[in-house]
Design a binder for these strands. Structure first.
Lengths: 342, 342
DNA sequence: TTGAAAGCGCTAACAC
DNA sequence: GTGTTAGCGCTTTCAA
């Protein structure tokens, strides 16, 4: 390291003023004389002075940093296709407000006291954006209840928690309804894990659409999987093995839909000829498979953006009008259903 | 916020010892009496005391945080397919060593003095992992030259910089050679931006393979694009428009290869019948397109892992034996070339 | 308009 | 073994 750290003292002595004056001058306090201010600025420039944020933080009890915490339950946390978009939205807001972004995987239940506390209380961060996970994750509950400013990405019934939610029920309803509208009746639903809110809600939307259209809900058409591509493939295989009779599948996410598509291709089952399929998420991959996947679009970038905005507003004591923000989804029709029109 | 911050003082007074003793006891210093230690620990537990990292950092001049900086040149920085895997590798190491991860997009050239300095010098971070970008990016140069500990992901000819590099030249060579081996002779290369090192190196590998196999290098077969899927599609369209005669394409990355594949499908050009295509990266998407893409695998997760390990070793004054680490790539044969064997 | 001084929470010399 | 003290770099009363 060739350059010594230059502190506020160095600037002060070069400018022949006190450190207090330097601090004031550099923060643009109107009280300080224009001449002095110029003097200080020149000194700072000359020394290439950059205020040490650590010192500032200690004093101000603010870090200008927020943490984005994602569950570490799955092996491929970061690889989750919408993670990147979420991050993009968050990053954009933070950049605009000169906040820093810290990224953590949430601690596993095991080492709670250590890792969990570290993230939560060490005060290197002003607030948290928490992405959703299992509804049984106790750590999340505790983070939320600690009083630490939290924006939760998903449903959370708690007074002092801000949320940004997708309309999972509505999206699933739309997806299912679309299949019904194009004439499908035996609609399989490959669900995500049913201890995840998304899994639960999408199943609910599916049921609701069936009900409203007077189609019998058949347990045999429900397969619980884990949102992975492999599990989607496996689901399709299972359906064949069990000789289930069906004409459509609504997959809980695109990855599973794409997995199923692969099985169909390998087994010469025509999509959408023999079976129509709809996914959920609208990840990029959905546009490169063939047939291209009809799916429910969810605005992940906007969700990240919104979440960051709410958190920063809250941290700056601005009134956050809507505690819950619900982002709507919409149907993207491509090729996997065999209908050209909505 | 319902809980007041509990500091080392609170613990000290509850345990009836000095703050120094608390500090020592909690850090497991062998000098402190076992009894006292237990006393302190109980007090800390009772008060739910978590050391404030800011105070610690200020004193120790270490933050136990490293920054991962990615270029903001492209709109979709985070969406870059291998970004997630890189992050996964980095995160794993940091978790193991109890380091925090800060994520930044590198400042654009415009606001250098502000954003750039902030990242570089505010000392909220102990070291940096810098991902590659344009070879003309001056900010990167300055970060590297500042003396700040940096691990650069890519080639960098500089004494005090650690690097983790892909073998781009070798990978491109292998890809091209594969096409030659299966009998292709008129091989198009869709390059990435030629002011990016990857773009340059992959072109070099391509040329070298041609040379070694005594195939004439034809400028007309080189198209410079920008690594995006759209640009790959555009490249294929361009080739048709210009009525270029060719029987294979080596794309500078998978995204462009997949874009080209799309064009071929739309225009009923058979792959691999009419043209063989090879990509580079081995992103997940390469396995869901049809035909599945033959490509060069690069171990992004391992690169991230290695980079983080090197940085942490360096920060802890361990000797880093290899300044340059070169990660090798290998060919993954799938369906887009029409050869079943390597 | 500027400076002196206190103190944010912590650790590390040094004393005892 | 444990306590006293100083000080990391900064901001912010309070006085001058």
């Amino acid at each position: 390291m060739k350059n010594f750290t230059v502190t506020i003292k160095d600037v002060a002595s070069l400018a022949n003023v006190s450190t207090a004056t330097v601090s004031l001058a550099l923060s643009g306090d109107p009280r300080v004389n224009v001449k002095t201010k110029k003097l200080v600025e020149e000194a700072a420039l000359k020394l290439n002075y950059i205020p040490n944020e650590i010192g500032r933080s200690l004093r101000a009890k603010k870090t200008e940093t927020i943490s984005f915490i994602i569950p570490n339950t799955s092996h491929h946390v970061f690889t989750h296709p919408y993670f990147a978009q979420l991050l993009e939205g968050i990053n954009e807001v933070l950049d605009n407000h000169n906040y820093n972004l810290m990224l953590s995987t949430s601690p596993s239940e095991k080492d709670e006291s250590a890792a969990y506390n570290k993230i939560l209380k060490n005060r290197r961060t002003d607030g948290i954006i928490l992405s959703s996970a299992s509804i049984h994750d106790r750590n999340i509950l505790r983070m939320v209840e600690s009083g630490f400013p939290v924006v939760y990405l998903g449903k959370w019934h708690h007074d002092n928690v801000l949320t940004v939610e997708r309309d999972d029920i509505g999206g699933a309803y739309t997806a299912t309804e679309h299949l019904i509208r194009i004439g499908r009746r035996r609609i399989v639903h490959i669900t995500g894990p049913l201890d995840h809110q998304e899994g639960i809600d999408r199943l609910e939307g599916y049921k609701k659409a069936l009900l409203d259209n007077k189609i019998h809900y058949d347990e045999a058409l429900i397969i619980e999987k884990d949102f992975s591509r492999e599990s989607g493939y496996e689901a399709a295989a299972e359906l064949m093995r069990k000789q289930i009779d069906y004409d459509a599948v609504f997959a809980g996410n695109d990855l599973m839909a794409i997995g199923a598509l692969k099985f169909y291709k390998e087994n010469k089952i025509s999509v959408p000829g023999d079976v129509s399929v709809v996914g959920f998420d609208d990840i990029e991959m959905a546009t490169v498979v063939s047939p291209m996947l009809t799916t429910i679009h969810q605005p992940m970038r906007e969700i990240g953006y919104k979440a960051a905005e709410k958190l920063i507003a809250f941290l700056n004591n601005q009134e956050v009008k809507e505690k819950r923000t619900i982002m709507s989804t919409h149907l993207i029709i491509r090729e996997s259903c065999g209908a050209d029109m909505p």
